[in-house]
Design a protein around this nucleic acid. Structure first.
Length: 236
DNA sequence: GCGACAG
DNA sequence: ATCTTGTCGC
């Protein structure tokens, strides 16, 4: 797995090359469990953006939580996005910064929950797959809305419904909280869908989003605000 | 050709 | 993703 990373896997010159890179990478994904058994250290990954930002900065953050949900470590990386936001190619915009942050994370998690799709993607290669493959780490895609496909779970927490697209099961729609929109869980890398759903559900502290995702979101926002504060001081 | 479209 | 207060409901 974690061998070398061809340049175009992180920095394709255009959409055509990005699409080809996704096909190359998708062929290397592992869809079976290849991670420690519980209790596990769960990681979270997310990116924050500033609207109308001419510098096009992406603030990426990673966090590692212990079995009780306490933050054991966190790392963030801010850099200019060298790829635009294009639905279906989010990995090329966010993975480079996340990978940089990963190298500075003091405590490695056993599995990483990524804010975005895994295999619930037009070509079966969402950003959770992208990040997992580049890092060689088990990842789970946790999306708040759909990119492709559909599926409506029952109203009770824990209810699921297959996320179907073109006759294929690409993930699972999961109700994590009554009255809240479902989450769309899919495989990233080195984990099975059943395990992914189990982990996400267990990490929900009565909230809609699993703890690692919330913590990563907070960390990414902190990184963004920190940069904003620095910019403000510079211009005064 | 007409919509849809993770973050 | 981001801009934002109050407000409805458990």
């Amino acid at each position: 797995m974690a061998t070398e990373t061809p340049p175009h896997w992180l920095h394709p010159r255009d959409i055509a090359q990005a699409r080809a890179a996704q096909a190359e990478m998708a062929a290397l994904l592992v869809a079976e469990d290849d991670l420690p058994s519980a209790p596990r250290r769960l990681g979270g990954a997310d990116v924050s953006n500033t609207r109308f930002d001419p510098a096009k900065l992406v603030h990426a953050a990673l966090v590692t939580l212990d079995a009780d949900g306490a933050v054991l470590a966190q790392a963030s990386e801010t850099r200019r996005a060298d790829f635009p936001y294009v639905p279906g190619y989010l990995g090329f915009r966010e993975v480079p910064a996340l990978a940089a942050a990963w190298s500075r994370l003091a405590v490695m998690p056993d599995v990483l929950l990524v804010d975005g799709q895994g295999t619930a993607h037009p070509r079966g290669f969402g950003m959770a797959c992208h990040l997992g493959l580049v890092l060689g780490v088990p990842t789970i895609g946790v999306a708040k809305s759909l990119l492709v496909g559909g599926g409506e779970p029952g109203p009770a927490p824990g209810d699921t419904a297959p996320l179907l697209w073109k006759g294929r099961r690409i993930g699972m729609a999961l109700r994590t909280r009554r009255g809240a929109k479902p989450l769309y869980v899919s495989i990233g890398h080195r984990v099975s869908l059943a395990t992914a759903v189990s982990i996400v559900l267990a990490a929900t502290g009565g909230r809609r989003l699993p703890r690692p995702i919330r913590a990563a979101h907070d960390a990414a926002n902190d990184a963004r605000r920190g940069c904003q504060a620095a910019e403000d001081l510079r211009s005064e």
